[in-house]
Measured scan of single mutants.
Amino acid sequence: MDVFMKGLSKAKEGVVAAAEKTKQGVAEAAGKTKEGVLYVGSKTKEGVVHGVATVAEKTKEQVTNVGGAVVTGVTAVAQKTVEGAGSIAAATGFVKKDQLGKNEEGAPQEGILEDMPVDPDNEAYEMPSEEGYQDYEPEA
């Protein structure tokens, strides 16, 4: 019985440690998101679009440190934060509304985080759909 109880105690310690790591990862992701939003706020009209992409990228980098179902929630929060940063930029006159959601080359930025393969159960990952990809044929 002692062996059984000791095993359960060790398992509990492992769960607590994993929860603490997840909590730490979420806190880091939130900190990076805040950094990115402050970065966007300090940019001029020309830099705002690039700044919004930076927020998304920093958040995406930190999301990889967070495991399990938390990833889905962090990704949703990050996307809403990026959308909010863009709205703030438009409201303050840093950028025109028609410039939001495009990178410096004018290509749409939507789907940055949505296409990231995420499995809350950590069982399997699927690649994003290939609808947006084109076949590449090298020139002879």
Rank of each mutant, 00 (worst) to 15 (best):
N122C: 08
A17E: 11
M1Y: 00
E61I: 09
V82R: 08
V71A: 09
K80W: 15
D135N: 14
D115W: 13
A76D: 07
G36Q: 04
E105W: 07
T92N: 04
P120N: 04
A69P: 05
K43A: 10
G47Y: 11
Q79A: 06
G51C: 14
V66C: 07
A107K: 11
K21A: 13
D98M: 10
A140F: 09
V71G: 03
D121F: 04
P138T: 08
K58W: 02
V48L: 08
P128Y: 09
V82W: 01
K10L: 03
E83I: 05
G47N: 15
K96P: 15
V26W: 08
L100N: 10
N122P: 09
Y136E: 10
G68R: 15
D121G: 10
P117T: 12
E110H: 04
V15I: 14
A69L: 01
E131I: 13
Q62W: 05
P138W: 13
E28F: 06
Q62V: 13
P117I: 12
G93A: 00
E130P: 12
F4S: 00
E83C: 01
M116H: 07
E35F: 12
E57R: 04
V82H: 07
A140S: 13
K12D: 00
V82E: 05
E137H: 04
L38T: 07
A53V: 14
G41M: 09
K58F: 02
A107E: 09
G86I: 08
D98P: 09
D115F: 06
A56F: 12
E130M: 06
A56C: 12
T54I: 15
Y125M: 02
E126V: 03
A89Y: 14
G67D: 03
A124M: 04
V118Y: 06
A29H: 05
E110I: 05
L100P: 01
A27S: 15
V15K: 00
A91R: 02
V16H: 14
E57M: 11
I88H: 05
V70L: 12
A85L: 13
Y39A: 02
E114R: 15
K34H: 09
G73W: 13
N122W: 02
A56R: 10
T64K: 09
K34M: 15
I112D: 05
Q62G: 00
G41R: 14
E110D: 07
P128D: 06
A89C: 10
E46S: 06
G93M: 06
K10E: 02
Q99M: 13
A78H: 07
A107S: 04
P138G: 12
T59K: 01
A27I: 14
E139N: 09
A69H: 15
T44W: 14
G73H: 12
G84D: 10
V49Q: 15
G47I: 09
M127C: 03
T44V: 07
G41V: 05
E114S: 12
A107T: 08
I88P: 02
T75N: 08
G73D: 06
Q109N: 06
K6L: 03
T59G: 07
V26C: 04
P117Q: 13
K21G: 00
Y136M: 13
V74E: 01
K45W: 15
T75C: 07
A85P: 04
T72C: 04
Q79T: 10
G36L: 02
A124E: 10
E110Q: 11
G7E: 05
K97G: 11
E35A: 07
T33V: 13
E131Y: 12
E110G: 04
D2I: 15
G51A: 04
P120L: 04
K10S: 02
Q134T: 11
E46P: 04
A124C: 11
K45N: 02
A89E: 04
G41P: 00
T75F: 14
V3C: 08
N122R: 13
P117C: 11
V3W: 03
V66S: 01
G67H: 09
A124Q: 10
K6S: 05
A124D: 05
D115C: 09
A107H: 11
K6V: 03
K80M: 10
D115M: 12
E61A: 09
G25E: 09
M127F: 14
G86N: 12
T33Y: 06
L8Y: 06
T44N: 02
G132D: 14
A11I: 15
P138L: 14
G41C: 03
A90N: 10
E123H: 02
D98E: 05
K10R: 05
T44Q: 00
M1L: 02
A17I: 10
D135W: 06
M127V: 13
V74Q: 02
